[in-house]
């Protein structure tokens, strides 16, 4: 922050400042553009979820609010997400060390876990709908469906990039250097989605 203010205080027209500025390489943050892009996306997502949480907190106070039961399957799904986050961490380490075989297995397993999670979330929906918890019955239900749907959509978006990484890895005869960075980015995103899920799940659990 301090450096930001220092930048804003520069006087670009002065000769002494010009000498310093001429050395500048044109980059403000020492990040790859992909990483900065990912961070921007994560900030925007965080804000979207924050607004939902604010709306949830506001709506909760009204007397017609009836909390929803949390099926045990949700706990299992949380487990799946935690597992896939761990797997991603391991895969990232494997890609740093260029262990091709481990990377391949890791990517497949993570993909499998993600699909399992999505399928299992749909199962939760199915169960709840069968027991009469419709979105229109109560706002708590509506929020639940909204949260899970949005979280699922985020995961599907992640899966698209995971799929591209995996196929690139297979196509280019396992050149690790080309996908190291994407694996790192995907790993960050997976951890982010886990964090979002834990916040959302915790919110629904405790209210």
């Amino acid at each position: 922050m301090n450096k930001f203010f220092k930048t804003l205080a520069e006087k670009p027209w002065e000769e002494s400042q010009a000498k310093i500025d001429n050395e500048h390489q044109g980059k403000t943050l020492s990040l790859s553009k992909y990483k900065l892009g990912l961070r921007t996306i994560m900030v925007v997502s965080t804000i979207i979820f924050s607004f939902f949480i604010i709306a949830y907190a506001d709506r909760m106070l009204i007397h017609d609010w009836r909390s929803m039961p949390e099926p045990w399957l949700l706990w299992a799904n949380t487990g799946i997400l935690i597992l896939s986050s761990i797997m991603f961490h391991l895969t990232k380490i494997a890609s740093d060390r260029q262990h091709n075989d481990k990377i391949k297995k890791g990517l497949y397993f993570i993909g499998f876990l993600a699909y399992t999670f999505l399928f299992s979330q749909l199962l939760v929906w199915y169960q709840l709908l069968n027991s009469g918890y419709y979105a229109a019955t109560n706002p708590a239900n509506a929020f639940f469906y909204l949260f899970t749907a949005l979280h699922g959509l985020h995961l599907i978006g992640g899966l698209y990039f995971l799929g591209r990484t995996t196929s690139k890895f297979l196509r280019n005869n396992s050149k690790v250097q080309e996908i190291q960075h994407t694996i790192e980015l995907c790993a960050i995103y997976w951890h982010f989605l886990l964090a979002v899920w834990i916040v959302l799940f915790g919110l629904m659990l405790f209210t």
Binding site: T7, K19, E23, K27, L36, T46
Partner: peptide
């Protein structure tokens, strides 16, 4: 909200000096 905050903090620490020391 906490996530966002963390990212922001990180982004700040990655800030590269725009003004490397002047050379003659």
């Amino acid at each position: 909200m906490s996530d966002e905050y963390e990212h922001k903090l990180e982004a700040k620490s990655d800030y590269v000096s725009d003004a490397s020391s002047g050379t003659s």
